[in-house]
Design a protein around this nucleic acid. Structure first.
Length: 431
RNA sequence: GUGGGCGUAGCUCAGACGGUUAGAGCGCCAGGUUGUGGCCCUGGAGGUCGCGGGUUCGAAUCCCGUCGCUCACCCCA
């Protein structure tokens, strides 16, 4: 018998669950405000669903086993395959664009560390069937507004964005061999954390033989859109993607969110399947891991056997977000568990107290009382600990008069009320 | 998979040249207080000192091993 949970798994005591619920409520509220509807799928899926997209090497990183029917199954490590599967099954009949969100619990078998456990909840929000810049801006705006809804401002976080096609075209133009692109992406992805020498070494390993090319690549992340379009005006893809990013930027600004976004040509994200816009939300100081990441994946649905539909979306986990909210003091106090606590002065009046308790509960109020008819002082202390807003004292005198004493716990004010006025009366605190 | 740090009460931690019955604060329970919470006072419960072995008259303390937690690397969905 152990009292601890498995490594990387969390117990949610009431105070912890209060924060989780707050996160879920806020996620839902903002997603729905943007017109997304909620869906869910099974937490257990066929292992093949994941190996098909990511290859066999992913098996060591997920919770997989053989079930009693001999099926190879896995706890879902991400939502996208499930999402793709569900969209594929109904795509023909669904009006476009499809705007869905979900809050799945995801699992991965890895060494736990700060901001990264073996289990977490993640808001997944996606649009399917749209290639427009407006849909790009809509998804990024939604991610930003989610954090704003928690009370975070532009001084707290920033959305970095880039474009996969743009960066790939620029890299090739700079002299990166096409087969070296993925490794070059990976090397540049570390630019913020690693030294320039480290980046140069990794680029050489990636197969970028030309020293001048390597040098130019390290400066890529600092280029502006204007510089990119000026330097590569002869490359059609670069011109087109720069124009698209400019339009994206103007739409974000029109939404009033310009202060929250920052172009970062060095941002590529590890995932191979992104085909256009990529973005990540970070705390301004970079003290935490990425809060949210996403992008456009126009080829993914078809590649996993789904319909040929463009798509984009993001994932936002509850772990890093929770750490950030704690850090900024944005965790709401868990609301009091009780509206009323009914104190009975002696065991003889317990029946009358119970009548009042249940009358109040029937009216929708959260009501507690003492099970053991302890001293009044003890009952008050219990009421205080339970966070009761008011205490209703029922004693022999009150019962005889058909009244009770109502004490507001925050102010200490007391009034005598007719028992019939307790529910719906003007002195009753709205719940 | 690799490396660092840490394991003593529910929580945060003292105690470490080896030496009576292992402590504090907070929390919990009870009493002071048989009609009024927070503050205060008193008492109580709660520990295989992560586990196993070794050295020793004697180990929370020293040695070896092991497990766990944690941070970072790898990877990142």
């Amino acid at each position: 018998m152990t009292t601890s949970s498995l490594p990387g798994f969390r117990d949610f005591y009431p105070a912890d669950l209060a924060l989780r619920s707050h996160i879920f409520h806020t996620w839902r509220e903002v997603a729905q405000r943007y017109g997304f509807v909620e869906y869910d799928g099974p937490p257990l899926e066929s292992l093949e669903l994941y190996t098909k997209k990511s290859g066999a090497e992913i098996v060591g990183q997920l919770y997989g086993f053989t079930d009693q029917g001999g099926r190879e199954v896995a706890l879902r490590p991400e939502m996208t395959p499930t999402f793709a599967r569900m969209v594929a099954a109904r795509a023909g009949g669904l009006p476009k664009p499809i705007k869905w969100f979900s809050i799945p619990q995801l699992f991965r078998y890895e060494r736990p560390q700060k901001g990264r456990l073996r289990e977490h909840f993640q808001l997944n929000l996606d649009i399917v069937g749209e290639t427009s810049v407006a849909s790009d801006a809509e998804v990024v705006a939604a991610a930003i507004d989610v954090l704003r809804a928690f009370g975070l401002g532009s001084e707290d976080f920033v959305a970095r964005y880039s474009d996969r096609q743009l960066i790939a075209a620029v890299m090739i133009e700079m002299g990166v061999p096409e087969p070296s692109l993925p490794a070059a992406f990976a090397a540049l992805d570390k630019a913020d954390r690693e030294s320039k020498e480290w980046i140069l070494d990794r680029l050489l390993e990636a197969g970028v033989e030309n020293a001048g090319t390597r040098e130019r690549l390290t400066g890529l992340k600092d280029l502006t859109l204007d510089e990119l379009s000026a330097r590569f005006s002869h490359v059609d893809v670069v011109v087109a993607r720069v124009e698209r990013l400019g339009l994206f930027r103007r739409q974000i600004e029109a939404a009033g969110l310009g202060e929250f976004v920052l172009l970062d040509p060095g941002l590529v994200r590890g995932l191979a399947y992104y085909t256009g816009l990529v973005f990540e939300l970070w705390d301004r100081e970079g003290r935490f891991r990425a809060i949210c990441g996403g992008g456009r994946y126009d080829d993914l649905l078809e590649s996993v056997g789904g319909p040929d539909l463009p798509a984009l979306g993001f994932g936002m986990g509850d772990v890093v977000l929770g750490e950030l909210l704690r850090d900024r003091g944005l965790v709401p106090h868990s609301e009091a568990a009780l509206d009323d606590f009914v104190v009975h002065v002696s065991e003889e009046v317990l029946p009358e107290a119970l009548r009042i308790v249940h009358q109040l509960r029937a009216a929708g109020r959260r009501v507690g009382f003492d099970y053991r008819s302890r001293a009044v002082g003890k009952q008050f202390r219990a009421a205080d600990q339970a966070g009761a807003g008011r205490v209703i004292v029922v004693g022999p005198e009150e019962v005889a008069a058909g009244e009770c004493v109502v004490r507001m716990m925050d102010t200490g004010d007391e009034v005598r009320l007719s028992t019939s006025d307790l529910v719906g009366g003007s002195s009753g605190r709205p719940s």
